[in-house]
Design a protein around this nucleic acid. Sequence first.
DNA 1: CTTGCTGCAAAAATTTTGCAGGTGT
DNA 2: ACACCTGCAAAATTTTTGCAGCAAG
Lengths: 137, 137
Amino acid sequence: MAVPGLERRFRERGLRRTPQRVAVWSDFAGHPGSTIREAAARLQRAGIGQATVYRAVRALEEAGLIVRFAAPHGEVRFAAVLDHAHLLVCERCGHVEPLQECGLHAYEAELARRSRFRVRGHTLIVYGLCPECQESP
Amino acid sequence: MAVPGLERRFRERGLRRTPQRVAVWSDFAGHPGSTIREAAARLQRAGIGQATVYRAVRALEEAGLIVRFAAPHGEVRFAAVLDHAHLLVCERCGHVEPLQECGLHAYEAELARRSRFRVRGHTLIVYGLCPECQESP
DNA sequence: CTTGCTGCAAAAATTTTGCAGGTGT
DNA sequence: ACACCTGCAAAATTTTTGCAGCAAG
């Protein structure tokens, strides 16, 4: 799977671009909102060990290539990202939809000025009910 | 500790307002960005069992009274919230600062219209370096 | 009252680690 | 080359559960 910015992000972070790490990232990209457990089960069929999945998740998360978020029922789920992380999550069925823009850049700049933090990025998770789940009781 | 909206939020969700749950919420309010482990250690000294802390965290999270987020190194941390959750997190030292506004309401409305989700709320985590950590190498 | 919450300790599940090869750069 | 990554299985850690009594509404 050729992902434009991915290779660069690996290099920038000094991460080796191994097939396993690409596979883990791709799995989350293809199944946004998976738990580590679910991803590991799928990847294990491709011969990737459990420990490797955990190690890759940690590396990718520190590199900002995936994000972790709280899904309904306190579950920890992940989704692949390339730049900012903006997700729309259904609280009922757990469906995750990546968002394109967030209109937060102005706010971020304002915040950096007021807080004296050096702002590097942000994660925005919007919770709600997806169209399907609005139907069923 | 008398927290204005807290009692109402408990009632709205059908949660019993027990001393233990209030203690757990207050602990995260007083130590934003704690892990469950750290909170449990503090609360255990007050005679609150480990299992109770885990059960309270689940209940409070489902009620939207605390939020879970990913801190540096993949750690899962929590912070108390009353309404929206807007946090400024230092990636180096883990310091967490709650934010007041987020300027996202217009975006949320726009999003609801375009995505056909029924948007209920959101969590915004801004990552960066706090003033202290900008100094030290 | 009645239903749900708590504490304790044990059980289950998840995550990390040590080590002997591989592999990317 | 050589530092870093992987797989395996075991070890460590975290989270959940069963149960008897307590307590909130």
